[in-house]
Design a protein around this nucleic acid. Structure first.
Lengths: 351, 351
DNA sequence: TTGTACGCGTTATCAT
DNA sequence: ATGATAACGCGTACAA
């Protein structure tokens, strides 16, 4: 019998006491060596390091952190909406790198936009005593985070502001980006510009729609309400909405997609209608293959890296100085002109 | 002065002792309630739960785990190559969901394919006493993980097997997928099929190339060595290699791309050469917009969800039974027939 | 320069 | 059913 049937680890992980015994010193000396404290003779240090090596000792940083002065665990929690989404994964990657450079680790979770899942994740993170939280808020109320914040766990909101709570925040210039898109289309001669967006309860969706409305309002005719479709939660819904919008009379000559999920549904619809070459289209959020589409997809790209870096920066800044005033960073977006945004208005209206 | 200038938290997080005092019971009773242990009168339980609520108590699970019988922290570590890559982020998402269902959290890190970063991440994870590790191995030697494994920290390798160590493993059916791709192209009349791949040191790249070689060897002519380009680490390199391959005489009539980074470079090259409609192309790994390209991109899709679920399943299984024999799961891939793989061989060779 | 006593928040053991 | 006390692995203060 190689196994004894119990769950116990075959070899217990060595502690500083094991190392001390092996090195023939007191365990406090080991601790001193590991923490680079002064007052260790270099010969002793060598012995200790040798023992560490032989035993394959690894500091138990969870035991360490319960005793440390500031109780810090050198880990942060990150709640995104869906890690499988390119925006979220890029964000996570950036934050992780930023954290790792400072020897911090990142716990990640996807809320799927469900408030209960967000709270569950935050709860688990806090119970593991993360030093800080970066949250893409899902629910309609983040006031529950005030308790954590008051206990010295800073919170940074990303992509959308938290509700009913003051905290550092990083958002994209949503409205401005969509306005730019409208103006770009207007320059190409478009006046009938449709807009497909997510539920208005989602902050970014509301912001983007308001950008659309503001830009359209500046035009002579103003907006045709029928061209605006919101509440689109997934690609199939966007597909359907696009079909309906382009069945209108008169049909729009251009289309703006409020996020990348919607873009996928909408472009499929245009494809189905045989309109991809005739309808101008601008999408919010860049996509990996956007420039290989025909026509190449014009997009309003978010600067995910600046967003991630900004969030991490705010968080680590606050870890050092709790008393600084809350900041809100608005990260510019960039209109990447490719082909689909330059398709001219093909009908008689404006020629 | 609202702030006192020190780093101390404004309010110390409440402990079970605070809860006990508030509820007027001994702190062990609180512990019993929190852990659903028997022998607590329901009235007492109510009092305790009320106190928990009022104080906003959150279990300090790091203190808890240092004392627990099995020392489990209910967290696992995941090392991927690059979280910003869709394959990695999907994998992470799946593993996270699997873990969260079991109240486990996931620490994630990107190795960038660098062995030192892999070791650094694993080290940090182990020092935080994760219960298990899921690793997409980067380095040429994972034997360093044996120490952890022997201490009862199971390791599961994903995407590639770890080297110089036995452990549970989940991989894709790389060679078979590429063979399928070759056969699909052969059926469309192709004989001159180029292959663009990553460095041979990368397990998946080697596997995929061997699948290509095996399938090509079965044909009459066999392979033209000049059609095989490996060592491609990024899109620009793939772009360049594709340009060179299609400058050959006779030029290939079809192309297989070994991963999605290469696909992006290669399709750009075909675009540049004006060959996108004439050269058949099959890519390993699906991409978000692949079906919206023109021609729609035929791909060999990995089942990232099955891979993730498989890895998590193996890990949690081993958490419960260390003694089971090591398993290796090979997840089937799927050829998604779209348009680019059906482009016929356009020249005289085989008509 | 080195070692000892104590405490962190929790779970485990044993008594009541 | 409840509580007192030990123990976990480590850092801190202080003694040696």
């Amino acid at each position: 019998m190689v196994q004894d049937g119990t769950e116990d680890r075959v070899t217990r992980a060595p502690t500083i006491k094991d190392v001390a015994e092996r090195a023939g010193v007191g365990f406090k000396t080991v601790s001193r060596v590991l923490n680079d404290e002064p007052n260790v003779r270099s010969g002793t240090r060598e012995k200790v390091l040798a023992a560490v090596e032989e035993l394959g000792y690894r500091r138990n940083s969870i035991a360490s952190s319960i005793r440390r002065r500031n109780q810090r665990t050198a880990s942060i929690g990150l709640v995104v909406e869906d890690l499988a989404n390119p925006f979220a994964s890029t964000l996570t990657r950036i934050i992780q790198d930023y954290a790792l450079e400072r020897s911090h680790l990142v716990l990640v979770g996807s809320s799927d936009g469900e408030p209960e899942r967000e709270r569950e994740l935050v709860g688990e993170f806090c119970s593991r005593r993360v030093d800080g939280l970066i949250v893409v808020p899902a629910g309609a109320d983040q006031s529950y985070l005030e308790a954590e914040r008051d206990r010295g766990i800073p919170v940074v909101f990303v992509d959308r502001p938290g509700k009913h709570i003051k905290a550092d925040t990083v958002v994209s210039e949503n409205a401005g980006g969509i306005s730019d898109a409208v103006h770009h289309l207007v320059e190409a001669g478009h006046r009938r510009i449709a807009y497909l967006g997510d539920r208005q309860a989602v902050y970014t969706a509301a912001q983007r729609l308001s950008g659309y409305r503001a830009a359209i309002a500046g035009l002579d005719g103003g907006a045709d309400r029928r061209y605006i479709r919101t509440g689109l939660r997934d690609s199939p819904q966007a597909y359907q909405a696009a079909l309906e919008v382009f069945a209108l009379e008169p049909a729009p000559t251009a289309l703006i997609c409020g996020n990348n999920i919607i873009t996928i549904g909408a472009v499929h619809a245009l494809q189905h209608l045989g309109l991809r070459d005739r309808i101008a289209c601008i999408a919010f959020d860049d996509l990996e293959l956007a420039d290989l589409l025909r026509p190449a997809l014009t997009v309003v790209a978010q600067d995910s890296e600046a967003i991630g870096t900004g969030a991490a920066h705010l968080l680590f800044g606050r870890l050092e100085d709790q008393s600084a005033p809350y900041r809100r960073i608005t990260v510019p977006v960039r209109l990447i002109e490719r082909e689909s945004g330059k398709i001219p208005a093909s009908d008689h209206q404006r020629r």
